[in-house]
Amino acid sequence: MHNPSQQALNPSSLTANIITALALVRKQKPLVVNITNYVVMNNTANALLAIGASPIMAHSRQEMAEMMQISGSLVINIGTLDSEWIERMLFAVEQANANNKPVVLDPVGCGASVLRTQTARTLAAKANNLIIRGNASEIIALAGEVSQTKGVDALDSSDTALTAAHYLVAHYHANVVISGEVDYIVTASQVIRLSNGHPMMPYVTGMGCSLTALTGAFAAIGETSGLAATAIYAIAGEIAAEQSAGPASLQLNIIDSLYQLNDDQIRQRLNIAVVA
């Protein structure tokens, strides 16, 4: 499996890699362990099922060691944070490290409170094989810069988070996905811009959380840059929006779009550029 974090590639070969990654997820059906927030558990589980992965929402410390032995990846989403969950998340990352499994971190609301910011940084520092997926404001805050947040909503544009993303890549040896009107994939070797999706998507709660979960599915089959998940989810959202009267129907249609997405749709719709 070619990984954009490992070598410089052009848009044509990146598109081919995305298509290959989707086929592998559908073939292998990787188990993705999710410690995620109450608001989006159903959404993220359905998104993972629709793309072909196998989700499990495992929050108990007692079973985490077993789960990480059989899973392909660990997804941690700090959206509904409390002290008990923090301890479980830290233990889960330890078990992911022990089993050489990738960790996908969604620092929901990082910058909105000291608790969220410190917890996200602690989790990021603990993970050995890390992918960070967040909106621009979360990425900026995680890197220690001043961000503009309103709860869990981003008030910064994706472009403004690139410097912060480069810092996170170097500091945590991570790959970073910046989500927004334009998405960026930032690795040690490349910056890739994706311009798909639809303006209606931010009006459905948990859209970014579902992308984080999908990033875990692709990481489980070796695509740890975050590119394939981001491209596929944005294209699925674009297709779903064309069939939707509003956010409620979009939430349903995006699941169908993920399930039905084919190679031709990816080739025809993907708006990708290598910017560095």
Rank of each mutant, 00 (worst) to 15 (best):
G208E: 05
A248E: 14
N3V: 11
N46Y: 03
A120Q: 05
N34W: 04
L14H: 08
T160I: 14
I185L: 12
H198Y: 09
D153L: 13
Y172A: 04
D82L: 01
A273E: 15
V32K: 06
P55Y: 11
L214R: 03
Q69M: 15
L105C: 10
Y233D: 01
I239F: 04
S71G: 09
V103D: 09
Q118R: 09
V108H: 05
Y172M: 05
V191P: 02
G226V: 08
A236Q: 01
V146S: 15
V93N: 08
S189E: 13
A92L: 09
T212G: 15
A120W: 03
M67T: 05
D264P: 00
T36A: 06
I56F: 01
G109L: 03
Q6D: 14
Q62V: 06
A112C: 07
N100M: 14
T20K: 08
A217P: 05
T160C: 12
A96Y: 14
K126M: 14
R88Y: 04
Y172E: 04
N262Y: 03
M41V: 14
I254D: 01
I56W: 00
G216C: 11
Q243N: 13
Y259D: 00
A188M: 10
M41E: 06
V93C: 10
Y203Q: 15
A220T: 10
N196R: 08
M68S: 09
N253T: 07
S12C: 03
A50L: 01
I255Y: 01
L261F: 00
A174M: 09
T44F: 03
D153Y: 11
S60D: 09
I51E: 02
V204K: 10
M68T: 09
I232Q: 00
G79Q: 06
A188K: 15
N128M: 14
